[in-house]
Amino acid sequence: LADMSHMKSVNPFLIVSAILVLHSQLLFALVFTTRYLDLFTSFISLYNTSMKLIYIACSYATVYLIYMKFKATYDGNHDTFRVEFLIVPVGGLSFLVNHDFSPLEILWTFSIYLESVAILPQLFMISKTGEAETITTHYLFFLGLYRALYLVNWIWRYYFEGFFDLIAVVAGVVQTVLYCDFFYLYVTKVLKGKKLSLPA
């Protein structure tokens, strides 16, 4: 369910109508690229490999569409969040706190940490403009829901498989918490047929 929710939110064709922030989409492309380098080193399942390839392809297609096709409608004035303020601390943290000090593992850790905050430029734009297109809110809802569903999955795996990945869990909790405000607005406004707009 989490993967399907994630899949729905990475669909590049959504951006035909959603107003997505280029900076967030560049961060997601970086997230998938650094996380799925293990495509070259380990095979888990056909499902796992295909999903990784789809996520990578979708993230680059989205960046391409925003950058090339919708350059005219892309409003850089609202996309002012400084991504280096995310990438630099996250990069430093992944060197300091990781499971194993190896190149692939540090990149995986970087990816996990970066994903937890990659949506901030998008949320920042919404807080600045004070509103969001309904299609954009659906995109955000599924992107947030996906990690929340993983939290449930991790509780399950902890009890039934003894699996526990502290880095993924902490980052997943942070990621989900960042969406809480948005989830509240989505349920109280968008699901009741109103447009998402913030009080001035």
Binding site: D3, H6, R35, D38, T41, S42, I44, N48, M51, K52, Y55, H99, D100, S102, P103, L104, E105, L107, W108, Y150, D165, A168
Partner: peptide
């Protein structure tokens, strides 16, 4: 080029 751990999740 050392491998990372085996991560079975997406």
């Amino acid at each position: 080029f050392r491998k990372g751990l085996k991560h079975d999740e997406l």
